[in-house]
Design a protein around this nucleic acid. Structure first.
Lengths: 342, 342
DNA sequence: TGCAAATTTGGTAGCGCTACCATCTCTGTT
DNA sequence: AACAGAGATGGTAGCGCTACCAAATTTGCA
């Protein structure tokens, strides 16, 4: 006689407990939970009653092991505190909360090596989908993504060569649009101030440069960058540096809104008139940009929407109808405000 | 003759593959990976070589199923985009990245019901530890936490009755300290402006009230609150409301820094002198507070440190040496700045 | 030297679930 | 009436790993 070993798992009800109580086979319970339409109305009710009574919750680990597929979306972002990625993650989270999928979050700290390590780790779970920020994966990371055996969505940017799918916008165009706006507004000695200088910042800088060169205004001394992580206080400092380098500066395109805010505050402090003496443009259009005094022109980016769309595409692919449009450009929008209204 | 079914899992190497290659039993490989000191030097080397050659990564799902314990920390926060919680999560993440534990993130959206749902869900994974924001769980949530069978750390606040462990600080004291500072600086008609009004905001308000009453300055018309989520633009609007209600207002203690920034910008816009006409105090002390012009007095809160400490305590408990101090108050610090330097 | 105790290794039997196939109804069709 | 086909249900055999116990080997010590 086989005596069931005292439960390792601390006595939580299992699928067989439910099956016994409902008077059906375990597999039928499994089906009732995952594909209700394949189980008769009546059994479904009985099973649901048993589930409720026992407080049964399926064990996701057992599920993942048996089906060789975890109900997990792996999400890789370079930062958890940067509002931009927080918004993307929020979009992903909100779109997934009604589904059975969980999120496995990874923070690459802007490091390609760390990204590889996390991808390796995530792969061991056989995730249902992978969402990664950026399009500049290392060759090793790219290989891992290609062999992940699940839908992959690269987010934040668009580019010519997706691993699988892409949702984002062109940072180069964003940088160019911002700069062209300053030029049109009559600014001439327009600086670029950029922190962190990750690939997206690099492309914004490239857009700035393209616009400046097209207008015959480019001067390398106008560009101030640092690998240091971005912050409002850094924005203030960098602006002072830029001004010291080029006293005739009359405008700045900032890498992001934090930097722009730092610039604005320094202008207040130094009694530099905005937009009269200096024009300011930010990037991302955080809420505070429209409240600032003067309000700050910025490039609005669809961060939350990127998260939502990435999930929608991944879910479609999982369901078997992979979207025909594999690269989705959600664009951006120039928000003209007081800081450039000369 | 039993023919092994074609691998469901897509041919990734398993522990038996490693064992075969290393010429040992599967269980020895398992041990070499989890408790290396229990395996002889020599076998360990052989096994490591086989692991490297095959690129073996253990399947966390199988592991969790077999050991009835997932290497997962469940983390519940009310918001992903609020910088405060993002910092806590970053602290948790950083402290855990060197360990084998993963993070399962849950966003309660400030809802007790959602918290219960997530706790139920998380419980089904038998996490190694749970970290939850706040101390105001519903009775059902509390029961779930108590029966989770793993260390539980409540973070952000301190209180008298922990489920298990606590790391945070007193929001009531924070609110009182901020308000007392304004009173000492000579402000009299000091308003409270608060958005969202979650339990922590409520306690800051209680601290404000205590300080005002102690000074004989309390007037309910000085209090302006809303359940709407906090933002810089909301801060601006609420300040206008507050001023319309009480034109003699000469100071504000803001629920958080976003609100404070909105107040500051509105002061600029309306040409209200800060700190002369109005004194401003924020809460949390985000980086931008010290850069703002004028710089804004705020209560610095140890958000990142809370995350680190919560993990440290949970890891200690998992390792068997539960910290004797179960409630850790990390305190806060009043940062005096220009916005209250009358 | 002999024997108990400690150390190292391995076999077996699941963990809770689902893929796969088999069985058993019911239709509907000829 | 006979039978194919569809739909509903169940049994069996793992998924990849570890808990538990047993066996083999080494060590310690009287």
């Amino acid at each position: 006689m086989i005596k069931p070993r005292s439960r390792r798992g601390g006595g939580r009800p299992t699928i067989s407990d439910v099956a016994r109580k409902a008077g059906v086979g375990a597999i039928t319970v499994s089906r009732a939970l995952r594909e209700p339409e394949r189980v008769s109305e009546e059994l479904r009710r009985q099973i649901q009653a048993a589930v409720d009574e026992l407080g049964y919750v399926p064990d996701p680990n057992a599920r993942a092991l048996a089906s060789a597929r975890a109900e997990v979306f792996g999400v890789l972002v370079p930062s958890l505190t940067n509002n931009v990625f927080a918004e993307v993650v929020r979009g992903i989270y909100d779109s997934l909360s009604a589904s059975p999928f969980r999120i496995q979050l990874g923070n690459t700290h802007y490091s390609g090596l760390e990204e590889e390590r996390l991808l390796q780790l995530f792969g061991s779970q056989r995730p249902a989908a992978l969402i990664v920020a950026g399009i500049d994966q290392t060759p090793a990371s790219r290989k891992l993504l290609e062999s992940a055996g699940c839908p992959v969505v690269q987010v934040m940017e668009t580019g010519p060569d997706p691993v699988d799918m892409m949702v984002g916008f062109s940072h180069l165009d964003g940088g160019r649009t911002a700069t062209e706006h300053l030029i049109e507004a009559g600014y001439r000695r327009i600086g670029f101030i950029g922190a962190r200088m990750d690939p997206r910042s690099q492309r914004r800088l490239a857009g700035y440069r393209a616009a400046m060169e097209a207008a015959g205004l480019f001067d390398p001394r106008l560009v101030t960058t640092t690998p240091v992580p971005s912050s409002v206080s850094l924005g203030r400092e960098m602006f002072r540096d830029a001004l010291a380098k080029v006293p005739t500066l009359d405008g700045v395109f900032c890498n992001n809104d934090d930097i722009a805010l730092g610039v604005l505050f320094e202008c207040h402090r130094a009694s530099i008139a905005v937009p009269k003496t200096i024009g300011i443009v930010g990037f991302n259009d955080l809420d505070m940009m429209q409240v600032a005094f003067p309000s700050i022109t910025s490039i609005r980016t669809p961060r939350y929407e990127i998260g939502r769309r990435a999930v929608a595409m991944a879910l479609a692919a999982i369901a078997g109808n992979r979207p025909e449009q594999r690269i989705v450009d959600l664009g951006f929008e120039l928000k003209r405000r007081e800081s450039t209204a000369r």
